[in-house]
């Protein structure tokens, strides 16, 4: 009997233990769920704060001109859809042309940035060569100098090349890795990849280009995706260089066209300008949504190591 009593006790104890374990698990699940809900609530509140300005912009794009400044309420008293329809044709050239122009400049620039900057970054991050730190320092320096003081010498330079009033000053530098930001970004990511990869590939007889193409790039998709997104957004929104280098209104890009709506001293068309600003965000948002998948997909590949 004694044994059975002990067995019983043991059974009870085990049962108890299982129950406690179960409760603990339940509690943890509950905590997890609570934690997730809390996290969502927090993120939703933050989202509202983050989105307020966009709502404001959207609302303003439907408002009559004198309501944009006069009223603090978000909701327009009457919806002026004509801000969109009229805005598209408000300038001497229709926005269709500006969009095509922007697409050309941006498309070429993004390709140029990704190719040339990843080349340079690969050299800086994965290859040993004489003068590496020297050139790296020079590259960093180009990031630091305020753009406005090189504007005029640069303008003179492109003028002498006969490039002013073409897209060449906007596009060619990007194929020559002019934006050190992306080089530095890629360098930081490339350096994180394990060295054994290159060493093994080298032993297998892979050329440096093969290593760059078949190993480094595929493993750096999150970085390349990030660079592509930034590059697209920044070029799409770039204003100063198109302002300086484009003269003919037929060649204007979207941000430049947006500046034609405003006249500090005279008649402005804020409603139409906001409407066109909202539309100008659309391609960027679409691109963002498409390319952020690339960042996500990166997990699978880089998790592999």
């Amino acid at each position: 009997m004694k044994t059975s009593a002990t067995e019983l006790e043991l059974a009870i104890q085990m049962d108890e233990a299982a129950r406690v374990a179960h409760q603990l698990r339940l509690k943890r699940d509950r905590q997890d769920r609570n934690g997730r809900i809390l996290k969502h609530i927090f993120l939703i509140i933050v989202s509202c704060v983050m989105l307020y300005p966009l709502f404001w912009l959207l609302a303003s794009s439907f408002k009559p001109e004198n309501e944009i400044f006069g009223s603090l309420t978000l909701w327009p008293s009457e919806f002026q859809f004509e801000n969109y329809t009229k805005g598209w044709y408000a300038l001497p050239i229709s926005f269709t042309v500006f969009y095509v122009n922007s697409a050309i400049v941006t498309g070429l620039s993004v390709i140029g940035n990704l190719v040339s900057c990843s080349f340079a970054a690969y050299a800086f991050a994965r290859l040993n060569f004489n003068g590496r730190s020297f050139f790296f320092a020079l590259m960093m320096m180009t990031l630091m100098i305020p753009y406005h003081v090189v504007l005029i010498p640069q303008y003179v330079q492109f003028l002498n090349l006969g490039w002013v009033d073409t897209y060449l000053p906007l596009v060619v530098p990007r194929f020559l890795a002019s934006d050190a930001f992306f080089i530095f970004l890629m360098v930081q990511f490339f350096r994180q990849l394990p060295r054994e990869l290159d060493e093994a590939a080298m032993i297998d007889g892979c050329s440096p280009f093969k290593i760059y193409w078949a190993i480094i790039l595929p493993l750096s998709l999150p970085a390349m995706g990030t660079a592509a997104i930034f590059s697209l957004i920044w070029v799409w929104e770039d204003f100063l260089a198109p302002l300086i280098y484009l003269n003919d209104i037929k060649s204007y890009t979207v941000p430049l066209a947006l500046r034609l709506f405003l006249d500090q001293e005279g008649q402005s068309a804020y409603g139409q300008m906001f409407a066109m600003s909202v539309l100008s965000l659309v391609p960027v948002v679409i691109f963002f949504v498409l390319f952020q998948k690339l960042i996500v997909r990166g997990i699978a590949t880089s998790g592999m190591k």
Partner: peptide, 12 residues
């Protein structure tokens, strides 16, 4: 075309 594609490479 003139306004867009051609302008990419040529002076306006």
């Amino acid at each position: 075309m003139g306004a867009t594609a051609a302008a990419a490479a040529l002076p306006a």
